[in-house]
């Protein structure tokens, strides 16, 4: 898939506070598809997204996004590249001093010179897409967790990006909110032709919508392929992760003791 890869990581090594988080990770993320990156909590999934977004620089190795070598980009080029990226943060990261409408309008106001009535229409269209047109006057403090994430999603697609990165979109969501997010991620990907990167440890939801998935543990990719290929993957580690999750006491969170021991994480994080 080399020629169609939108994001390509090669031999990426990254350490933080003396601890090696990625130990020569190599990964291709195909254009126009949903790619799930899974792994236990603390394996550096979010760090991976920050490396792709250029917020962190690897110690060595190459991070290419749409042909650009991200760590080498100058500040201006990096900010220009980021305009083509949307990122949905785990907390939503809405600006607490702005209303829902103004949050979604923020990237449009900063990056475009569109007239006010057009910004109004675009914001309402984006909010309509996530089902929250009626909530435009609310402040972020008045929203539920699921609604916060949907507003954040509307904001991250405001500039019609080519790439959207979801950081644990399902974590801490009730089943209905989770169902809504699964539907939104799938619909947005097909209707806007986005490249989607989904970082999650919620195996069933992630595998149900992704075209391609990879599992990270111990700073390396331990398994990758289509959901079907992964389900038939010979590695015990991969199977333990895929099947271990629903058996844990907290189904959508960090695997229970037995899985942790089998991964040989020794302290995790």
């Amino acid at each position: 898939m080399g020629s169609t890869a939108y994001i390509s990581l090669k031999d990426v090594v990254f350490s933080r506070s003396g601890r090696r988080i990625f130990d020569g990770i190599t990964l291709d993320i195909p254009r126009g598809k949903i790619t799930a990156i899974m792994g236990p909590s603390g394996t550096g999934k979010t760090t991976l997204l920050r490396l792709i977004g250029g917020q962190l620089r690897p110690d060595s190795g190459s991070v290419r996004v749409d042909g650009h070598e991200v760590p080498r980009l100058k500040r201006k080029a990096l900010y220009a590249l980021r305009e083509k990226m949307g990122m949905l943060f785990q907390s939503g990261a809405l600006f607490t001093d702005l209303s829902v409408f103004e949050n979604v309008a923020f990237p449009l106001r900063v990056h475009t010179k569109l007239p006010e009535d057009m910004i109004h229409d675009i914001v309402l269209m984006k909010l309509e897409a996530v089902g929250l047109r009626g909530a435009r006057h609310l402040m972020p403090s008045e929203l539920s967790g699921g609604m916060t994430r949907r507003v954040a999603l509307a904001r991250s697609i405001a500039l019609d990006p080519e790439l959207i990165m979801y950081d644990e979109p399902f974590a801490g969501q009730d089943p209905i909110a989770m169902g809504v997010l699964v539907k939104l991620i799938r619909d947005l990907n097909s209707s806007m032709g986005l490249t989607s990167v989904l970082v999650s440890h919620d195996v069933p939801e992630s595998l149900s919508i992704c075209h391609y998935a990879c599992i990270i543990a111990d700073g390396k990719v331990i398994g990758e392929g289509t959901p079907e290929e992964l389900k038939a993957h010979p590695s015990d580690q991969v199977q333990q992760f895929l099947q271990g999750q629903p058996d844990g006491p907290v189904p959508f969170h960090y695997p229970a003791d037995d899985a942790g021991k089998d991964f040989g994480l020794g302290g995790g994080a």
Partner: peptide, 14 residues
């Protein structure tokens, strides 16, 4: 702490 600064960076706003 609430990642508002990070999200701003990712929106291409310094």
């Amino acid at each position: 702490a609430t990642e508002q600064l990070s999200s701003m960076e990712m929106m291409g706003v310094d």
